[in-house]
């Protein structure tokens, strides 16, 4: 990738990071933000708390979640050779949703108020995401046809949605609100510990990605070619699903099911660098994911609208454009 485009992305990311930390509804001036950042001990405690315990964790969560979702989207699109594949496919997000719904809607609300309760949502989401992933892996061993596997993932999403709907119809108002809040997606509730876990998941996924990076380009030709070029298809598929599961599962657990970033960013990255080469797309995809998530979160904060509302409002026109130019995009993956 040309250095200037790389540099440009880093610069945009830096500006958005500053805006995310600097802007807000609390009426803190730029000078006060700077003071809270550089001298947290001497700055007014309210300012330090807002900056260090609210805005910085939220900013870090947005950047980490955006990067994670974007790379998992890239892997999904390569694996299925389908430009509309994303982390929400394969039932991973819906598995996470079902996990949370089972916990929150079936009477688990009493633990919601405690700190342990909040972590239990994340655990439920991760268990749900990996249960869905395990099911898909099991089916993938029997179905070698990628479109069929994709349809299976979509059907799994429908099925889990039906279960969630059933749970919702029986739930109390309070638990329903908790679930709906999680479902709207937000980076606001992430603290430093959760960010550390998301960072650990991202680093682990990138290390696993390193092991399969040279194989990913070969998969662009499809499995029947990759299979004759020295790639163990079953093992590669398994690894790709595990990486996607870690990235999408952990992110969904802490931030809720955040839509569109995983679908949209890989396309923007490939267009930006005019190449489908995964080695060249890795860094721009991660940076663009972080940029898009920060941008959506910034608008969400300033407009007081939920994150997924903003992401969908931006994402839906993008997907329509994608459909209209389907053939052109299809040939890019």
């Amino acid at each position: 990738m040309p250095t200037y485009k790389n540099l440009l992305l880093w610069m945009v990311l830096a500006v958005l990071l500053m805006l995310e930390i600097g802007l807000g509804t609390a009426g803190i001036t730029v000078a006060q933000v700077f003071e809270a950042l550089t001298h947290p001990q001497s700055a007014p405690i309210a300012h330090s708390t807002i900056i260090w315990d609210s805005r910085i964790p939220r900013t870090m969560a947005a950047a980490l979640a955006g990067a994670s979702l974007a790379w998992s989207g890239m892997l999904m699109q390569t694996m299925f050779r389908n430009p509309l594949a994303g982390p929400s496919m394969l039932g991973i997000s819906s598995g996470a949703s079902l996990g949370v719904a089972l916990l929150v809607l079936s009477g688990g609300t009493f633990i919601m108020s405690s700190e342990l309760g909040y972590m239990s949502i994340a655990v439920a989401a991760i268990i749900g995401a990996f249960a869905a992933l395990a099911l898909v892996l099991l089916v993938a061993e029997r179905i070698s046809d990628q479109p069929t596997l994709l349809i299976f993932g979509i059907m799994l999403s429908f099925f889990t949605s039906a279960l969630v709907d059933a749970l919702q119809s029986q739930a109390t108002n309070e638990s329903l609100r908790s679930y709906v809040n999680w479902g709207l997606g937000s980076f606001a509730d992430c603290d430093h510990r959760e960010n550390a876990l998301m960072a650990a998941g991202l680093i682990m996924s990138l290390l696993l990605t390193r092991a399969i990076l040279p194989r990913l380009n070969l998969l662009l030709l499809g499995e029947q070619y990759a299979g004759t070029m020295g790639i163990d298809i079953t093992q590669t598929r398994r690894l790709m699903m595990v990486i996607t599961g870690i990235l999408a599962g952990i992110t969904t657990a802490f931030c809720g099911p955040v839509s569109f970033i995983g679908l949209a960013v890989p396309h923007v990255s490939r267009r930006l660098i005019a190449s489908a080469d995964h080695r060249r797309n890795l860094l721009p995809t991660l940076l663009l994911g972080a940029i898009l998530a920060l941008f959506c979160d910034l608008i969400s904060r300033l407009s007081a609208l939920p994150l997924n509302t903003i992401a969908s409002a931006l994402g839906a026109p993008f997907v329509i454009l994608l459909m209209l130019r389907w053939s052109r995009f299809k040939s890019m993956i």
Binding site: L220, A274, R328, S331, M332
Partner: peptide
């Protein structure tokens, strides 16, 4: 193989 695999971007 016989399919017309034509990918852009490479």
């Amino acid at each position: 193989w016989t399919d017309r695999t034509r990918i852009q971007g490479i």
